[in-house]
Nucleic acid binder design. Sequence first.
DNA 1: CTGCATCCGTTACGATACTG
DNA 2: CAGTATCGTAACGGATGCAG
Lengths: 140, 140
Amino acid sequence: MKKSIDWAEANAACEALTEQQDSLTRDIVTRLAEKWTLWALAELAEADAPLRFSRLMERVEGVSQKSLTKVLRQLERDGLVTRAVFAEVPPRVEYAITDLALEMLELVHPLWQWTTVNIAKFEAAHATYDHEVPARVKRA
Amino acid sequence: MKKSIDWAEANAACEALTEQQDSLTRDIVTRLAEKWTLWALAELAEADAPLRFSRLMERVEGVSQKSLTKVLRQLERDGLVTRAVFAEVPPRVEYAITDLALEMLELVHPLWQWTTVNIAKFEAAHATYDHEVPARVKRA
DNA sequence: CTGCATCCGTTACGATACTG
DNA sequence: CAGTATCGTAACGGATGCAG
């Protein structure tokens, strides 16, 4: 069960990237954990069809217009969603998830799954933490 | 190659969690992508031995003391690293990665790997994005 | 050596009001 | 309907100085 990562290989892969590519990799992964990104992607994936801005906003419960707009713009820039504007009145804009994003979600899913399965361990860790004295271990 | 996620099942798993557990799951995943968290964990995993604060700080290039301290405290609370204080002079504090964190890294690794392998696609997406008019599609 | 306290600029996010 | 503009709050993260 302990297949342990090959760090030599992993480092080699990292160093094969340009400075810029390495930075971009970091950015992509970081963005995944911004407050609404994963949620929005998951809703688009689950819908399995293009969604209008307002439909998507209903599903991503609690997001503000501003934040959703920003997140979607970023995802579009990253090639993870497509944005289709229809010149109608009233205006219609549809967002859809790309194959690239679907592939990515396939990899994020096991991580999420594992976290939910092991959530008890994290709860336990938090419960026992209080004992520790954060700063000094010192006696009086 | 398109094994697509079973959303019904995924949702069921989510709803089996308490409000608090769901929130904690989100927190854990979110923290993984905070600026230094993954990097610090990876260094501890690669070292495969406890590291002193200053050794770790050398390896996590560019991190400030403040940020590293904060990250390590959080990881300790989450049960992902252990912190051993030795009552010596000068003081020695050693950080080590836990099995829980190693298990987690196993799942994060493929995501990172995939991102580096597909980095060209993201670069391409960014390169072609400029054409789009972010706001109005309007004619003149 | 470890790491807390403080200052400070930047970014994230929400609420509200307004436009095509 | 789908944003943009503006405002205010909060959190992030670096730099520096100090303490045990």
